[in-house]
Simulated assay, not measured.
Amino acid sequence: MDIRQLRYFVRIVEMGSLSKASQSLHVAQPALSQQVAKLEDQVGKQLLVRSSRGVTPNETGRALYHHARLILRQFEQAMTIARSDNGEITGVASVGLPATTVAAVGLPLVKRVREKYPGISLNVVEAMSGHVAHLIRQNRLDLAVLFSRDLPSDLSVEPLMVEELFLILPGESDLLSGRDSVTMSEMAKVPLVLPTSDHGLRKRIEAEFESRALFPNVVAEIDSLSLVMNAVHDKIGGTIKPMGAIMQEGQRGRSFRCLRVSDASFHRSNYLYSLPPNALSSAASVVAHELRIVVEDLVASSEWTGFFPRPEPGDRPPASSREIA
């Protein structure tokens, strides 16, 4: 078994087709099939299920795929280290961030890494938290920020910060004019633009309403942060989000009001996930360190409210706080 065979196998699984993998790798399909056959002979088991619709890995193939991705990542990191001749930390580090987290810490993180570690190529992937979780489970990310700590135990996880959730309205809206807080019963009367029902945040919001025999007045369901904020700005409705949702809006000349919920405590814990220490590159380790510093600066800043320090070991989360996926 060699690196080339593993690289071919991983690409075939990801493309779901020998012909597509052949085109992507610029390798003739018969030669690619021959390498797969050799790999299956070495493993002693079939790895792929072939059909008219393409190829999919069986249980053994899926297990090899996950380990192969990790081996290829470690091999690339080793080659990067070997090629470096001045001790500078170099390499690629990938981090997955949900949209509101990107808005809050994305640019400061990119700036810090670029200034302090120019040899690191930082790959920031913005996606919904469920997709980010999927990517790091597949070893396709080095680091990820997520809102629950129920991912597989082979990943390292640590608390990062706690966010407060606000009712966000357009700056010029007549709704709840002059107010800086709102009750749950008042919020039930506000037209809301919320994530779709599969989203963890939506479930959390609905549970809070239902506990008071109330129902949110949902006028639109949108999973795109930019579209949600456009809809709010155009006075289609308000939304319930952390402060990160509006942190880049001032640069666009748009203003919003953030109202605290006075009779419910909406908090969302943020967790930093990473590959196991033995699989984490030096580049990814320093990016994780810089991310912690960016978050600490955000929490300490007087410019923005609604960000709280990560709980120390043994501490309890804020009162009434619940994890939101």
Score class of each variant (00 low, 15 high):
residue 257 R to V: 01
residue 232 V to N: 08
residue 232 V to D: 08
residue 255 S to E: 14
residue 237 G to R: 08
residue 229 M to Y: 08
residue 251 Q to E: 15
residue 287 V to C: 04
residue 244 G to Q: 05
residue 229 M to S: 07
residue 262 S to P: 04
residue 316 R to P: 02
residue 310 R to Y: 01
residue 260 R to K: 14
residue 236 I to R: 15
residue 302 S to C: 05
residue 272 L to V: 00
residue 307 F to W: 12
residue 247 M to S: 12
residue 247 M to R: 12
residue 323 E to I: 00
residue 264 A to W: 01
residue 303 E to M: 11
residue 290 E to W: 04
residue 301 S to A: 08
residue 242 P to K: 06
residue 263 D to N: 12
residue 309 P to T: 00
residue 286 V to D: 08
residue 304 W to I: 12
residue 297 D to T: 06
residue 271 Y to F: 15
residue 318 P to N: 02
residue 315 D to G: 02
residue 252 R to A: 10
residue 270 N to G: 11
residue 245 A to L: 04
residue 310 R to C: 00
residue 294 V to D: 07
residue 285 S to V: 01
residue 317 P to V: 04
residue 229 M to V: 01
residue 262 S to Y: 01
residue 276 P to L: 01
residue 295 V to D: 09
residue 229 M to Q: 10
residue 249 E to V: 00
residue 286 V to C: 07
residue 275 L to E: 06
residue 294 V to K: 09
residue 302 S to W: 03
residue 260 R to S: 13
residue 256 F to K: 09
residue 300 A to Q: 13
residue 312 E to H: 12
residue 285 S to T: 13
residue 227 L to G: 02
residue 305 T to K: 15
residue 256 F to M: 05
residue 228 V to L: 11
residue 278 N to S: 12
residue 261 V to L: 15
residue 241 K to Y: 12
residue 300 A to S: 12
residue 289 H to R: 14
residue 283 A to K: 08
residue 289 H to P: 00
residue 284 A to E: 08
residue 244 G to S: 03
residue 318 P to A: 01
residue 293 I to E: 14
residue 309 P to E: 07
residue 304 W to Y: 14
residue 252 R to K: 14
residue 229 M to A: 05
residue 314 G to E: 07
residue 270 N to H: 14
residue 281 S to T: 10
residue 318 P to L: 04
residue 322 R to I: 07
residue 317 P to F: 05
residue 284 A to Y: 05
residue 314 G to F: 04
residue 314 G to T: 02
residue 304 W to A: 09
residue 253 G to L: 05
residue 323 E to Q: 15
residue 268 R to E: 13
residue 249 E to Q: 15
residue 307 F to M: 10
residue 285 S to D: 07
residue 323 E to W: 10
residue 297 D to L: 09
residue 304 W to G: 00
residue 280 L to S: 10
residue 282 S to G: 11
residue 293 I to M: 13
residue 291 L to N: 04
residue 266 F to Q: 02
residue 285 S to W: 03
residue 226 S to N: 14
residue 279 A to F: 03
residue 292 R to Y: 01
residue 289 H to A: 14
residue 286 V to Q: 09
residue 238 G to C: 02
residue 263 D to E: 07
residue 289 H to T: 13
residue 269 S to D: 05
residue 270 N to Y: 06
residue 269 S to Y: 02
residue 311 P to N: 04
residue 264 A to P: 02
residue 263 D to P: 04
residue 264 A to Q: 13
residue 233 H to R: 13
residue 266 F to D: 05
residue 304 W to V: 14
residue 276 P to I: 01
residue 317 P to L: 12
residue 245 A to G: 06
residue 305 T to D: 14
residue 312 E to P: 01
residue 248 Q to H: 11
residue 274 S to R: 14
residue 229 M to K: 10
residue 276 P to M: 03
residue 246 I to Y: 09
residue 295 V to A: 07
residue 314 G to Q: 07
residue 240 I to R: 11
residue 260 R to I: 00
residue 267 H to M: 09
residue 291 L to K: 06
residue 302 S to F: 05
residue 231 A to N: 12
residue 285 S to C: 08
residue 226 S to L: 09
residue 302 S to T: 12
residue 312 E to F: 06
residue 262 S to G: 02
residue 230 N to T: 10
residue 322 R to D: 09
residue 230 N to W: 03
residue 279 A to Y: 03
residue 248 Q to I: 05
residue 314 G to C: 02
residue 307 F to C: 10
residue 290 E to Q: 13
residue 253 G to V: 01
residue 313 P to Q: 05
residue 259 L to C: 03
residue 228 V to K: 15
residue 314 G to Y: 06
residue 229 M to D: 07
residue 302 S to H: 13
residue 284 A to D: 09
